[in-house]
Design a protein around this nucleic acid. Structure first.
Length: 607
DNA sequence: AGCTCGAGCTTACTTGGAAG
DNA sequence: CTTCCAAGTAAGCTCGAGCT
């Protein structure tokens, strides 16, 4: 057949897949919203239809306390905090989304109830259900799990690949349409039109949507500049200063800060001394004069002069080069202004390209802006400042570290990026975890201080301070072991012994020096390596381990799995039934897949 | 405190290829 | 042919760590 008809066929397949995919998406969203497939909310519906006549009793919105579930279960379910209607709503919502086996997830959804309280409520519900037995439901009335053949999976994979390509385009289109409608609602000539701030906001959003390694590095640079200006006490820059616009001398010393040596801490003083020493050594090596300014120098390779243009011939066309390229050019030239030996290069410049090969000049063939510079320029033009990054929750992670992770994430060298939303989500997760750790550490410390206050044998030096061991205790309570402490690379044997002794001492009366606890660490290299390896595979699940609750009905039957007086005939019968059910399921599966293939032949509704 | 080494980072240069 | 692009590379700076 012709390629045209096969293309049409593929397009039709994709439309069918899309219809199914959207339905599936809708179902999943309904599930997580706690709704049943027919769109009704899950209120009052327990899993497996556990309640029949009790709908009115267990209805979450009825405002009754859990203690009123049944008379018999009153004792178990009574607790100090009666369940409000909204809490019961949330509980049934959670039951629909998760299951009765995961009270931890349900409790986290309710937020105001603990796992034991949820367990007590579920127990009460089960007791209530046991007093109102359900009609015997045969297993063959339940829908089997459907297994499809490889050919269907291959077909779905193919369609999914198409979807993956098409989705970003659709999203962009939908967003454009939305923005256009907003702009239409706000005419430009209207007084106090929010168009300008909106456009600026959208530009920033677009610049930060997909963050590749270059943008991540540019972000890290912006944040670093922000921090540096904050430390200097200078007003925060509204945007990253463009080096090209700075005076070369100022730029060379842009990070210079010259505090008096006497004001410096011993650590800073030593750092400064080393810095100056290294400058002297480098100057000796190159035969130049060392810069004795205490501030930081401009890092990076110094720029060479460019050879002058040819005296004959037409002037070079510079039409398509952007202004930034001109700026970069200027940067490179200006950069040399502060360097030693620059004058010679300029003096000899009139000799033209003859001299270019001698190394005094840069190569006459000048490159354009490279990707890192373009990313930097893009963010600058979009008005990305540390405040904007903070607003988008992008100031938590080190951009360089994330960029390096992305670089190593794929072996095939494919360029990949990370979504702004993903980073913001990680920010939220980290925020939640750290908040919980801090909360538990404070509680741990308060309890410890209270306990010790009643006994004169204990001496608490700093009752308001949180100790590392409190944090470790908090981590233990959350099911995560204490992270490996940062180790030192090499220590002499005697030092290690000293540390070992101190470690024990400071564990006992560590109240005096909380901040320097990391100095007291002693772990063997092998242990460090092992811990590091374990830490590498830590996941969020390790922080919050799953809490399973086996319903009491299961626990009671535990002893009867293989009774001694087993009825062989009954067992045979049950196994035969099992086989029959399996056979029926297989037939159902085949029918199901046949229907799937048939549904492809129907023209789907295009939406 | 002086000195050395090396990692890590930034910046600019080089150069082959693509695009106009 | 000119201009632009971008990966790779060179050059320089800072700083941590460790030795003497």
């Amino acid at each position: 057949m012709s390629g045209e008809s096969s293309a049409q066929e593929a397009e039709n397949d994709f439309r069918i897949f899309l219809t199914q995919y959207r339905q599936h998406l809708k179902d999943i969203r309904a599930h997580f919203a706690g709704q049943t497939l027919d769109g009704a909310d899950s209120e009052g519906q327990n899993e497996g239809g556990d309640e029949t006549d009790d709908d009115n009793i267990l209805e979450p919105g009825c405002g009754m306390q859990a203690a009123t579930v049944t008379e018999d279960s009153k004792e178990e379910a009574v607790d100090q905090d009666p369940w409000t209607a909204s809490e019961k709503d949330a509980l049934f919502h959670g039951l629909a989304v998760h299951s009765r086996l995961r009270p931890d997830l349900i409790a986290s959804r309710i937020q105001t109830k603990t796992i034991p309280e949820v367990c007590a409520f579920l127990e009460a519900l089960e007791n209530a259900a046991s007093h109102h037995p359900l009609p015997d439901r045969r297993r063959d009335t339940l829908l089997p799990a459907m297994e499809v053949t490889d050919s269907w999976i291959t077909w779905e994979e193919r369609q999914a690949a198409h979807l993956l390509l098409a989705e970003p385009e659709w999203e962009a289109y939908a967003q454009d349409a939305q923005r256009q409608s907003i702009l239409t609602a706000h005419p430009e000539d209207a007084p106090d039109s929010p168009r300008t701030p909106l456009l600026a906001q959208w530009k920033a959003q677009d610049a930060l949507r997909a963050l590749d390694k270059h943008r991540l590095r540019a972000m890290a640079r912006i944040l670093r500049h922000g921090e540096a200006s904050a430390e200097d006490g200078s007003p925060p820059a509204t945007s990253v200063p463009d080096d090209a616009n700075l005076d070369p001398v100022v730029r060379g010393r842009s990070q210079s800060s010259t505090p008096s040596t006497r004001e410096l801490s011993p650590k800073s003083r030593r750092r400064l001394q080393k810095r100056l020493y290294m400058r002297r050594k480098r100057a000796e090596k190159t035969g130049t004069e060392a810069v004795q300014d205490e501030g930081l120098l401009k890092v990076g390779r110094p720029a060479k002069a460019r050879p002058p243009p040819k005296k004959t011939g037409p002037p070079r066309k510079r039409g398509r080069r952007g202004s930034a390229a001109e700026d970069a050019d200027a940067t490179q030239r200006n950069g040399d202004g502060s360097e030693e030996g620059e004058d010679e290069g300029n003096d000899e410049g009139d000799d033209g390209e003859e001299e270019a090969g001698k190394g005094d000049y840069a190569h006459p063939h000048k490159g354009g802006l490279t990707a890192p510079y373009k990313a930097r320029r893009l963010l600058q033009e979009a008005g990305i400042t540390p405040a904007v990054l903070a607003e988008h929750k992008l100031d938590m992670f080190d951009g360089i570290g994330v960029a390096r992770f992305l670089e190593h994430a794929r072996d095939d060298g494919t360029a990949i990026s990370i979504s702004r939303n993903t980073l913001a989500l990680l920010y939220d997760i980290l925020y939640d975890i750290v908040t919980e750790i801090v909360r538990r550490a404070i509680v741990s410390r308060e309890q410890e201080v209270n306990l010790k206050a009643g006994n004169k044998a204990w001496r608490v030096k700093n009752p308001d301070g949180i100790l590392p061991k409190n944090v470790e205790h908090a981590l233990e309570m959350m099911g995560a072991g204490a992270p490996p402490r940062p180790g030192k690379r090499k220590r002499s044997a005697d030092n290690e012994e000293d540390d070992g002794d101190n470690w024990g001492d400071e564990q006992e009366d560590g109240d005096g020096d909380e901040a320097s606890a990391s100095d007291t660490q002693v772990t063997s290299d092998a242990q460090d390596a092992k811990d590091a390896q374990e830490a590498q595979f830590d996941l969020a699940e390790d922080i919050y381990p799953a809490f399973f609750r086996l319903p009491s009905a299961y626990a009671e039957k535990h002893g009867d799995i293989l009774p001694d007086d087993m009825d062989e005939e009954a067992l045979e019968r049950e196994l035969d039934e099992e086989d029959e059910l399996d056979a029926e399921d297989c037939v159902a599966q085949e029918t199901y897949e046949e229907n799937l293939w048939l549904s492809m032949q129907e023209q789907p509704a295009i939406n």
